[in-house]
């Protein structure tokens, strides 16, 4: 289980990116984080990944506080972040250096086929499109079979078709080894498609605004009325989270109106 205990992060320049976030994520759960720009979603993911240290509070993964990157945690960043000097296959196999070349090759080939890039093993990252690069990054994170998978808008650079097919791949993989998944997304439809629970965050300072349990059973039909209803509920909450954020701005507008 993954849990955040009054987690806060204040950056060196005084920006309060997260303030007292408390949340539990069950083993094998897919949690989606949605929220307006700058509400600390990436910050939260970086803290879980062990890339940054919280200013206060802590993150426990199976009872252990996370202080640095862990072997059983996979990360997919907002950008592909491939190593340009490694071939596609070498990029995917980057985290498998402890295996024999033979074992590694098998896993890498398999992972590439799963993201729809079979046969591209020997190309350079620069020869791939942006979406293909992101798919290589996804394969690189999945090939190590992490217990906890962190994804920061992994599909936002992809077209709708590729995205839908990767949703399918991700769910298939998740079905096999049931990792815990924490994913950031801007796309409410994506959140409802994939997640068991959807957390709406609010900016300045970043905090949890609301959380929804997804009532839909898998596989989910995007065209069903229930899907639409769930989507609408979250959109409404998102809307409120952004309005609540700036009550003083509204007031400023009113005074401005009086002045005119």
């Amino acid at each position: 289980m993954l849990s955040f205990e009054t987690l806060s992060k204040t950056y060196a320049d005084g920006t309060q990116a997260l303030s007292a976030v408390t949340l539990d994520v069950a083993q094998g759960e897919i949690l989606a984080l949605v929220g307006g720009s700058g509400c600390g979603k990436t910050t939260l993911l970086r803290l879980i990944a062990g890339l940054d240290r919280p200013s206060a509070g802590r993150i426990l993964l199976d009872g252990e506080a996370i202080a640095e990157p862990r072997a059983d945690v996979g990360v997919i960043f907002q950008e592909p972040r491939l190593f340009p000097w490694l071939s596609v296959a070498e990029n995917v196999g980057f985290g498998l250096s402890h295996l024999s070349a033979f074992e590694r090759e098998g896993l890498v080939t398999n992972a590439l086929v799963r993201v729809g890039l079979g046969g591209h093993d020997r190309r350079w990252p620069r020869e791939l499109s942006g979406g293909q690069q992101q798919r290589v990054a996804i394969a690189r994170a999945l090939v190590t079979r992490p217990k906890l998978l962190l994804m920061d808008e992994p599909f936002s650079a992809l077209d709708a078709t590729t995205r839908a097919s990767l949703h399918g791949h991700l769910l298939a993989l998740w079905g096999e080894s049931r990792p815990t998944v924490v994913m950031v997304t801007h796309d409410v439809e994506e959140a409802v498609t994939l997640a068991d629970r959807i957390v709406v965050m609010q900016p300045k300072p970043g905090r949890v605004f609301d959380a929804f349990d997804n009532p839909l059973a898998r596989p989910r039909d995007r065209l069903s009325p229930a899907f639409e209803a769930a989507k609408r509920e979250i959109l409404r909450s998102l809307d409120r989270s952004l309005r609540d954020e700036a009550p003083h701005q509204q007031k400023a507008a009113e005074t401005a109106g009086m002045w005119w």
């Binding site: 890339l51 640095e68 990157p69 862990r70 960043f77 972040r81 980057f94 985290g95």
Partner: peptide, 8 residues
């Protein structure tokens, strides 16, 4: 470099 850190 962060990717390197993620892979420990």
């Amino acid at each position: 470099v962060e990717v390197g850190r993620v892979f420990r």
